[in-house]
Design a protein around this nucleic acid. Structure first.
Lengths: 155, 155
DNA sequence: ACAATATTGCTAAGATTTACCATAATGTGA
DNA sequence: TCACATTATGGTAAATCTTAGCAATATTGT
């Protein structure tokens, strides 16, 4: 699967503007609508385009507290990990869960909640009751000068 | 700005499927296309909908290495911070940059690169040369069982 | 240079978006 | 509770967009 300059240009644009009409996209990359649409469909079928999503404003939804949580597990057995991941998947306040390298933690979680009360609820009633969770360190986000879903496209 | 069940239903659906046609969305929430479109437009104008983006497959783009980096600064002065943020904004491999609380770091970065060579380039040629960067700790992502942009919508 | 292959741009049919308006539903104050 | 004001809905139609087929053009490899 190799991408020419048209494909790369398409990807760069639609990463930022997912709902651009095909005509506008075609114009932006200097191609007529037909081949432009064909290329997009191909990129979708290849799986390179995973999907289209809508980004909401967290603050306007009342979600003002974002927290990165480093989780340590007591034992590093496969069933400990899969059980943790299954439990975590039930909580909609968890936006990301990454298994990471590093001495201090096994998992890194990105969590979003309304306020500190909700955070406490999440921590005490949802996270720490999960079997095997032996340590939790929380870092609260003060501001996020960069926050994008757009991946770098190589030249 | 208060949301009724239609609005919440719209938001829940379009967070997952950003390019759903208005007709399909209307059908999904049991409303005719006209009022459905009006609601979406209103949500856009209110700023609650920030925008629509396309999610690409990082692996298929050759981007196989994701890393969370904790950055410490030597001095906590406003110009140190703003200079760091301005420099970081120039690097497309930085997907997120958060100013965070916690004893161990000032910034948390989410970085994506092709491989360890590119990571080394980023670390040595781009990140550490920034004035004021006094410490860097890197955690590599092994897998990400959860990775969503969809925010929880309260009932 | 030439043949084979792939890609483009045009066209037209079908589908969708979108504004308008009459009707229905909701909420408010007496 | 009722009348009234306000708001939201659903149908309609025009404009726009999507999308597949096809002839023409461009690209690639030998």
């Amino acid at each position: 699967m190799k991408l020419d300059r048209y494909d790369k240009h398409i990807l760069e644009i639609i990463q930022q503007r997912g709902k651009l009409s095909n005509q506008e996209l075609a114009e932006a990359i200097n191609l007529s609508p037909s081949p432009c649409l064909r290329r997009v469909k191909q990129l979708e079928e290849s799986g390179l385009i995973e999907g289209y999503v809508t980004i909401l404003n967290a603050r306007k939804l009342g979600l003002t507290l974002i927290c990165f949580m480093q989780i340590s597990m007591d034992k590093h057995t496969p069933d400990r990990f899969s059980h943790f991941e299954a439990k975590i998947a039930e909580f909609s306040e968890v936006l990301e869960c990454h298994l990471v390298t590093g001495q201090s933690a096994d998992y890194l979680l990105k969590v979003i909640v309304k306020d500190m009360d909700d955070f406490q609820q999440f921590l005490l009633n949802k996270l720490t009751p999960i079997e095997g969770v032996s340590g939790v360190h929380s870092s609260f986000v003060l501001k996020s000068p960069i926050n994008t879903t757009a991946l770098p496209i190589s030249n």
